[in-house]
Design a protein around this nucleic acid. Structure first.
Lengths: 239, 239
DNA sequence: GAGTGGTCTAGACCACGCA
DNA sequence: GCGTGGTCTAGACCACTCT
């Protein structure tokens, strides 16, 4: 019917349903989810498919499983879920997060050398550059510098990013979905722009993350340099 | 025959084989792994089982998959893989890592309040306490404070931990396997013991991790407070 | 013993990349 | 067109937990 063939897999649909039920409070911390066999019947699918959905929920920290008992809903983390796969906006929740654009998006050359190795295609295409500050309760928490290869993202630089999730824009407008990535992190003393944008004193410790973010497009990754003021909020992750 | 029923699942065995082949250089960065169908035949198992093994390799960052092409061996990270599931010793490699015991293991009471919420059983049992420093190339990298619930770990306090992996000892001597966990991290200024053990100046930024580590034993988790000097090595993780 | 999750088989069809 | 990985079915047996 419509122009696109969406075809969301069944296990993903079930994942989204259960996730929504957990985050919206239908199931609360400590509750048991329906058994795998129940979920088969109510969703009209077989156990391997149900298990794919549950595996994802485990991976994302929403439930834990116990053989012989069932699937138990976990407490939702109160920290900042930046280390997991979701973008910052989804991790913190739209309500409390504001985004201020400092610069861009503009097209320019890549830094040379760049933190991560770049392919020839990436180098030739140039890069879309953005600087943003993310605020929680109106206090700056992240200073985020984003680098996207300038490949097949029409009209990207004329879009509005103020208070919007980059991940959402990529997914909804360009069908680019984040599938994972890698990151390096260290503690550094704040200086220069970092002090200014994060509102911290010179020399104060801040978290420094370098991330490579992979997508469903083959050979399309983008990059993010992130400075985080962790005096009030910890970063949170599961493994 | 023997006293224990080990019964390592087939997908785990295949995972270990492939992992060893990758880390030992049989497959190198950029190489294609055999196709899933090939792996079915050579290992005498079916595709869902092969896929479980490959999924784990993807999760641990050894391979990436591309529909229509195959499974590609990734570059092995050069950073410190502390954010993934393996213990520190396996993450860095035994060759370069030394462990110095500063204190313990001794049995004592839990800090009150403790960083993570504790169950009644955990509180009553008391805690096994250890302080260790991990050195890479003879330079201190981690200052690690470990808290284990004192539940069913006979003779634990009289074991030798010098230059040995805690995860290995737990697995081999007590059949306690690490299945995952959660962590909070922040950048803090070094002071007191941290300066001393990590050999950094007062006020120098260090990484501070608080980890809860879950195991295959129901209701058995242990805890680790970790300070890391990231001036020379980054921490590395995939997501 | 009944119910749960853990593992596994033996097939099937589809979407994607490449020659 | 062919081989690849992605998804899914319809069963099976086992180990574990609870009663």
């Amino acid at each position: 019917m419509s122009g696109k063939k969406q075809n969301i897999p069944r296990y993903r649909q079930v994942y989204e349903i259960l996730r929504k039920h957990i985050t919206s409070g239908v199931y609360r911390e400590g509750d048991m989810l329906p058994s795998e066999n129940d979920l088969c019947q109510t969703n009209g699918i077989t156990r391997p498919t149900v298990r794919l959905a549950l595996d994802q929920l485990v991976k994302d920290g929403f439930i834990k499983k116990q053989q012989g008992k069932g699937s138990i809903v976990c407490a939702q983390p109160k920290g900042i879920g930046i280390l997991s796969v979701a973008g910052t906006t989804t991790a913190i929740g739209k309500e409390n997060l504001k985004t201020k654009i400092l610069e861009g998006p503009v097209i320019r050359k890549w830094d040379d050398p760049f933190v991560f190795p770049l392919s020839e295609v990436e180098k030739e295409s140039g890069c879309i550059y953005m600087e943003r500050v993310r605020l929680v309760n109106n206090k700056p928490l992240f200073y985020d510098i984003t680098f996207l290869p300038n490949i097949n993202l029409p009209r990207f630089t004329s879009r509005t990013f103020e208070n919007r999730s980059l991940f959402d824009i990529l997914r909804k407008s360009y069908q680019v979905k984040v599938t994972g990535g890698e990151q390096r992190l260290k503690a550094i003393p704040a200086k220069g722009k970092i002090c200014q944008h994060l509102d911290v004193k010179e020399g104060e410790p801040v978290l420094h993350l370098e991330r490579k973010i992979n997508t469903n497009r083959i050979d399309y990754s983008f990059y993010s340099t992130l400075f985080c003021n962790t005096t009030e909020h910890d970063l949170f992750g599961i493994f």
